[in-house]
Design a protein around this nucleic acid. Structure first.
Length: 319
DNA sequence: TAGGCCATCTGGTCCT
DNA sequence: AGGACCAGATGGCCTA
């Protein structure tokens, strides 16, 4: 079980969180937003903004290497998944060499990679994203030293590479948009689950949001089932309400003790009934047969009062 | 400094 | 061919 619930804003709903969720600690002082949501955060990337700057560390160390990989469509960091991929990469590397060999009717063009390496990569990528002009071609770097120097490039290959670059940027933008939509949906989910949305409370993580929502749904289903049992019980001849204070009568929250969905049986003054199928309803046992004895009933009432008190105290503490 | 969380890039796969 | 979806990789930020 979780010893320290990381989201104090969840009013009395700690039990909704599965134990699989690792404890999280709030970020920063109270009142602080999650940094990724803030426009000043380096990873904040508004939808309408131009493509982000390359954040690859190796690229920062070696812009030439990054440029070469980007222009060739080679992975910046991810290694090939299988030998076939390596073969593809090999072909592309070979292609660099082939590009230096003038084919029939092909013009050769001089490219000085050192000029490109002096350029700000972000500016370069942005320009490529818009116009895809002016930076085509690749730099030979067979020895991996990043000192490509002057190479020859086929214009057709350049055009193809520019097109591939354009496709790649388009795919990246779509993927970014898709993830933003996904995050929007998660935000909407956060807004409807019992979780205090205040600036002093850290936003639920993605996994915590999903787990909390799942358990909340299960809890609501249990509550509905409980109400069904109450209605069925009251509809039976001779049924009577247990002696509950008026404020607790029909208050389902009194039965929402510690983790009704994950822990043991929830105390209930009403008999457990099978699912509400007509046949099941017809064969349901009478309340008098299975109703708890008076002592147990009193104990359940006390337990409910304690749970109600705990819930109320939690609410007071949080507000 | 390690671990958690996140955004982004990227290549692969499937579908239209 | 293009788009959606997915998973892996990577690096940044933050906290304990």
């Amino acid at each position: 079980m979780m010893s320290a619930f990381p989201y104090p804003g969840v009013l009395g709903m700690q039990h909704l969180m599965s134990g699989e969720v690792r404890p999280l600690q709030p970020h920063g002082p109270p009142g602080r937003r999650l940094d990724h949501d803030h426009p000043t955060h380096p990873q904040y990337f508004p939808r309408d903004a131009p493509p982000p700057q390359p954040r690859d560390d190796s690229a920062a160390r070696d812009p030439l290497q990054l440029l070469r990989h980007d222009l060739l469509g080679l992975p910046r960091h991810a290694p090939p998944r299988d030998p076939q991929d390596r073969a593809v990469q090999g072909r592309e590397d070979i292609g660099i060499g082939l590009g230096m060999i003038p084919g029939p009717g092909r013009e050769l063009q001089l490219l000085d990679c050192r000029d490109d390496s002096d350029q700000d990569p972000s500016v370069k990528e942005e320009r490529e994203g818009r116009e895809l002009e002016g930076t085509g071609g690749s730099c030979s770097d067979e020895d991996g030293s990043g000192r490509g120097g002057v190479v020859l490039q086929d214009p057709r290959d350049m055009r193809k590479q520019r097109q591939q670059k354009h496709v790649r940027l388009s795919i990246n933008a779509r993927e970014r948009r898709r993830m933003h939509d996904l995050n929007d949906a998660l935000d909407e989910l956060r807004s409807v689950i019992p979780y205090a949305h205040s600036p002093s409370v850290r936003k639920l993580s993605k996994i915590a949001t999903l787990l909390l929502a799942k358990n909340f749904i299960l809890m609501q289903s249990n509550a509905i089932e409980e109400l069904r049992r109450v209605v069925t019980y009251l509809n039976q001849p001779g049924a009577h309400l247990p002696h509950l204070p008026p404020s607790m009568a029909f208050d389902t929250s009194v039965n929402l003790g510690p983790d009704p969905t994950l822990s043991g049986p929830t105390p209930t003054p009403f008999p457990r009934l099978p699912p509400q199928t007509p046949a099941a309803t017809a064969t349901a046992t009478t309340a008098a047969d299975s109703s708890p004895p008076q002592g147990a009933k009193l104990q359940q009432q006390q337990q409910q009062q304690q749970q109600q008190q705990i819930f109320t105290n939690q609410y007071k503490n949080q507000s």
